[in-house]
């Protein structure tokens, strides 16, 4: 596979991973909020939320592997795993590395066996860090993304940010009202 193809694949998998992350977040916020009404099939919501989270991690891995395999990208093992080591777009790559770690932690701690071993409160805080992961993913895409100047990219960013803000706002307002 040529370097250019890997580059296209890396860009597209990165975009898909970001969209999946936002969808998983929206699904999670809607599922866990009392204010979003009674759902007839909570198991369906939870199952799809888990699946979207898993897919996010899978596509993030594809994104990382393709950018690593692309010899022209100058991304080595250190740049993939250690934040702040990239010579080009240092901050942007750092956000990407941190987001990758957060997605991995959130997804792996949600696996049945690991989840059961963790105290509920700890797991909840870890799970909430996915909100931060999505935010820094957006930052990573905006800073380093080749398509950031495209109108479609900007429109998509606004749409997805708005879509994520809606259930988040409902959730926060609900928490404040209850207290």
């Amino acid at each position: 596979m040529s370097s250019t193809t890997l580059w296209y694949l890396s860009r597209s998998s990165g975009i898909v991973a970001t969209v999946l992350a936002v969808l998983a977040l929206i699904w999670g916020l809607l599922f866990s909020s009392r204010e979003t009404g009674n759902r007839l099939r909570p198991a369906w919501w939870l199952d799809l939320h888990n699946w979207l989270g898993g897919l996010t991690l899978a596509f993030t891995i594809v994104h990382v592997i393709t950018i690593f395999a692309d010899s022209d990208a100058a991304i080595g093992v250190a740049q993939v795993f250690i934040p702040g080591t990239a010579s080009r777009s240092t901050w942007a790559v750092t956000w990407g590395v941190l987001a990758m770690y957060l997605f991995a932690i959130v997804t792996l701690t949600s696996v049945g066996r690991v989840k059961r071993k963790l105290p509920r409160r700890v797991w909840h805080w870890i799970h909430l860090s996915s909100v931060g992961a999505v935010v820094i993913t957006g930052l990573h895409a905006y800073q380093v993304g080749t398509d950031r100047d495209a109108v479609v990219f900007k429109a998509g960013l606004v749409v997805f940010a708005g879509a994520a803000m809606y259930p988040a706002a409902i959730r926060v307002i609900g928490l404040m009202t209850r207290k």
């Binding site: 694949l9 898909v16 596509f59």
Partner: peptide, 16 residues
């Protein structure tokens, strides 16, 4: 979701 994600990735790669 899996099919849609894979198709989108492939389609985006071709589009880019």
């Amino acid at each position: 979701a899996l099919l849609l994600s894979c198709t989108t990735t492939g389609g985006l790669t071709a589009l880019l």
